[in-house]
Design a protein around this nucleic acid. Sequence first.
DNA 1: AATATATGAATGAACG
DNA 2: CGTTCATTCATATATT
Lengths: 179, 179
Amino acid sequence: IGEERGEGDRVAEGVLCVKVMTDEQVEALRRQIAVYATICEQLVEMHRAFAADQDSLAGLKLGSGYCESMVASGGHKMIPRQRWCPTTKQLQMLENIFDQGNGTPSKQKIKEITLELSLHGHISEMNVYNWFQNRRARSKRKQTAPSNIEYEVDTDCESPNFKMFKSDELHHEDQLVGT
Amino acid sequence: IGEERGEGDRVAEGVLCVKVMTDEQVEALRRQIAVYATICEQLVEMHRAFAADQDSLAGLKLGSGYCESMVASGGHKMIPRQRWCPTTKQLQMLENIFDQGNGTPSKQKIKEITLELSLHGHISEMNVYNWFQNRRARSKRKQTAPSNIEYEVDTDCESPNFKMFKSDELHHEDQLVGT
DNA sequence: AATATATGAATGAACG
DNA sequence: CGTTCATTCATATATT
């Protein structure tokens, strides 16, 4: 669905200029997502069974820590980053708070938020403050922004449907386009 | 988000009858699918490693063909993110403006430029804005580091790609636009 | 095809 | 707060 979308909507800046998808396209996307969801489930299932097997007959442990190590084996240096990287969870929470309106959180409020978010990853009050500043500024700019594409799409972030590995962490509402 | 067009009202028309999605929504879908693709890849990876192990000690197969087909069935080709592709003409004009010095055109100026450039192809203010940001940043960087460079030290915190098993540590790779 | 480079875009932080 | 910078991600294009 690569989109040759550019053709149709360049017509006039002011005029409606909507990005449209046909029903088929939307359906296609939905299906694709569904397929992936299914595949993931199956793979996990499969892997689990496999792991069990493995366990019972070789006594190798590997099982759970395995995934972890695999990821870690990516090799890269573990030099921590200089810039704050919000975790998915943190983003969710921030986004939530932001959506509740209430403009700039007060100093006090920021402290609270920071405290709470710190349970889900390294974070400082400054980070929270900056985040809100940016979030607001960018969402505002987006309003001003006219018709066309990609105007600083400031995401509300949402984690994928991925509870299998961290169900304790994700309690998101799974949203696929509300239509 | 900029919902000037009521999501579903248009249907009565019978003609038009298009499914309208905001850019944000489309992006959201795209990313969501991408996340699944990623997850699937990793699961397959994982499973494969596992299977290899298994193989060497139990001789079971299942390993390769299985996953392959499953994943393949998903289509797996990601919808490419549409990104602005400046026309030659536009580039010329931008380059010209840039060469006149005058730093960042900012706001009003950007509007004008955008308007003008839109005569030569699909473009938005954000594109113009980004272009100037990048242009400046890069020309500066070139000066600063004409000799041997050493940056690009990728850190652990957001590996270029994914790290699925630690949602607590996932960074901004899996963000999704919501609603 | 696989890899390298160029460049559009995203975003945390800082500035005035 | 609005704007700008710095750095990084992602993808289109070029190169081998």
